[in-house]
Design a protein around this nucleic acid. Sequence first.
DNA 1: AATGAATGAGCTTTCATTCAT
DNA 2: AATGAATGAAAGCTCATTCAT
Lengths: 225, 225, 225, 225
Amino acid sequence: MKPVDPATNLPPDAAPRPVRSRDPERTKQDILDVATLEFAAHGLAGGRVDAIAAKTQTTKRMIYYYFESKENLYALVLERAYAGIRRIEEHMDLDRLDPETALRRLVEFTFDYHEAHPEFVRLVAIENIHNAEHVKASLAVRETNRPALMVVKHLLARGLQEGVFKRNIDPADLHLMISALCFYRVSNRQTFGTIFECDLNDPKIRERQRRMITDSVALFMMSAD
Amino acid sequence: MKPVDPATNLPPDAAPRPVRSRDPERTKQDILDVATLEFAAHGLAGGRVDAIAAKTQTTKRMIYYYFESKENLYALVLERAYAGIRRIEEHMDLDRLDPETALRRLVEFTFDYHEAHPEFVRLVAIENIHNAEHVKASLAVRETNRPALMVVKHLLARGLQEGVFKRNIDPADLHLMISALCFYRVSNRQTFGTIFECDLNDPKIRERQRRMITDSVALFMMSAD
Amino acid sequence: MKPVDPATNLPPDAAPRPVRSRDPERTKQDILDVATLEFAAHGLAGGRVDAIAAKTQTTKRMIYYYFESKENLYALVLERAYAGIRRIEEHMDLDRLDPETALRRLVEFTFDYHEAHPEFVRLVAIENIHNAEHVKASLAVRETNRPALMVVKHLLARGLQEGVFKRNIDPADLHLMISALCFYRVSNRQTFGTIFECDLNDPKIRERQRRMITDSVALFMMSAD
Amino acid sequence: MKPVDPATNLPPDAAPRPVRSRDPERTKQDILDVATLEFAAHGLAGGRVDAIAAKTQTTKRMIYYYFESKENLYALVLERAYAGIRRIEEHMDLDRLDPETALRRLVEFTFDYHEAHPEFVRLVAIENIHNAEHVKASLAVRETNRPALMVVKHLLARGLQEGVFKRNIDPADLHLMISALCFYRVSNRQTFGTIFECDLNDPKIRERQRRMITDSVALFMMSAD
DNA sequence: AATGAATGAGCTTTCATTCAT
DNA sequence: AATGAATGAAAGCTCATTCAT
């Protein structure tokens, strides 16, 4: 006969009985939020369903109830992460700005978004370790991201037409250039910072690099081949 | 009575009977080679000691004998990977070239090295998922990489002195810029390629981007603030 | 945001949206039909309530609503299966035939019934794995089957009285003999067929064995001790 | 800080630490013995690896170490069970006896073996529920059993040649007849006994039926078509 | 009477690691 | 120095069942 806590009628070492949330949608979002952090922190293989359950007001069972498998949960986490950046990107209203300013704004936004969402950066890095197989399988991710290239394409066309941009480069190339500079700073912050002994979290350094990246992209576009 | 695995006649965990190599050093290198591929392919958490043993002429037990733990093996794999790029970097003899050519050569080399060693790129990406804790713990990695910054620093100083470079930027910033552009193409090839439907393995695209990256870095350094 | 199963857009446990049948009796029969196949195919432990629900126009919940538990459902499936054979058995009208013909008819009927109803054979085999505990608990099964022995008993008495049968054996023994020969062919068809490389489904073999069984029983009864 | 038993240095509710048996072969046999009972009692789906471990001086882990999977363990249990009956069958020396006596001896042996080894009977019944897929996959089982048919074939040939047997039937048919009568009594003992209210364990009834079965087979073989 | 949502308990299996010589 | 055998701990997942209206 085990001793039980008179308040809960449970053995003292038992996990606290999760409260019935009565709000499935909230519970699902809750799980997705926690899972985002867990997978971003430890990867798909390293992430633990147990750990996710522990940090949620749910049980492991419910995670499988709502999401069917660890892998599926991960795929949805990834979809949400992609949705985040694109949703904002679309509302930047670059058209109101002259091409150079618009380009600079786009780079700065990209920089800031990566800086503010390291978990997005990590998830994408992780997905690449898995050869993007979940992205390949997800129509949603592909559709979410399609407009991103349109924004660049449109800006590029406008800049060329107005004679501000001097290079007729592939929109994907420009997007790659911007993304690379913004992504790497966050994705490789830890190794880079350690090896070259510079603190990429330092606001002063961040500002300096933000400027450097913006300038180099703008400069590149505005000088002739 | 032979119970277990009908295919191999061995207990399930056992690796296929290894040949006694009688050459410990070769065996260790063999394990490191295989482990490099395994960890690069699946990450630290996802990499399987069993899988490494299976692809080696050794047993799982010997991996532990030589390397003590999976994590330690991974750390050594990482050290070797870093050693690779720096060893070559050091022998580039940039001093013989004028600053612009040297800078272009450096970018091109970096580009080519990343292109040729995706497993290095993946390992570094993986290490960042683990917050660079193995890099932080490894004196060897830090020492291996220190000269890399010196190369950039020296080139930068020379270019400025000769008046070819117009920007007095932090060597780490320049290194970051170059690395970012070269690393991202490989690290994020799978997601980027899938989402934006462009094949980053295509030689034509590769050449185009190689030029773009080289040009943009050179242009940036050679134009005034 | 629709999480879960991309195929059905439903949480994983949920059955495909059922049509409201509004005919409880029909629904119950439907469930019993499907459950009969499921339990016959996989046994009591191996049968899945989920699988039954999936093949029915109902939900898992309704199965519990109507049948209370998996075990109870199984018990009812078993009762129905026993009812089937006895219902027919009772209407054989053996009394109109001379004892030998009647005996042969009885054997042939038994043979044919087992041949035609492998799921009955499987269910009985399964029930024996469970030590007949559901049969023991079910008055219905015992009452359903009682007349079966009466048929044999009556035939036996008649044959003896008419001097056609030469052995005064226990009706249960005769019933056992007939059942064994007919049951085993179906219950053990798979192992027997595999091991001794003969196809017990082959109509030619079936006919030959049907004759053999009928003959041997008749011969036994009609020859003196 | 949990209280520990000073004798074992383990918390009082911990399972007793299994002793290292130092005799793997014995351990394997031990596991097979226990597994035989567990699977015979509950079937493949119903049998619990946990239960097997608990009844052995081993851990669940060791079962998987030696046998790789529950299914494989079951398959080996089955192989052993088949080996048992055939090993004895082969040493019956029927050739020394005249055909009728030999046939009677064969039936009696078969009867006695099934009577003495209900777990064999149950395992075979269970295997049939699984459509004999493990038997089909096991070369061992098929080879173990091949001689059984030879014994019958040889006896049959001898009896016919000597003019004692009057029927030229297929050896498989004769084997089926004998097996059916002996198998069913054991496999269906529980349902048959319950339904027809006769105790098939009663030695008196057993003897009577043993005689009946032997007589009926002998009679069948020795009377003309 | 009928049912959508939720879940406790326990399953098989995996994996890095240590025991013992 | 080298290694075959063994293993603790936990992981992902499944299943019959109950909650709550």
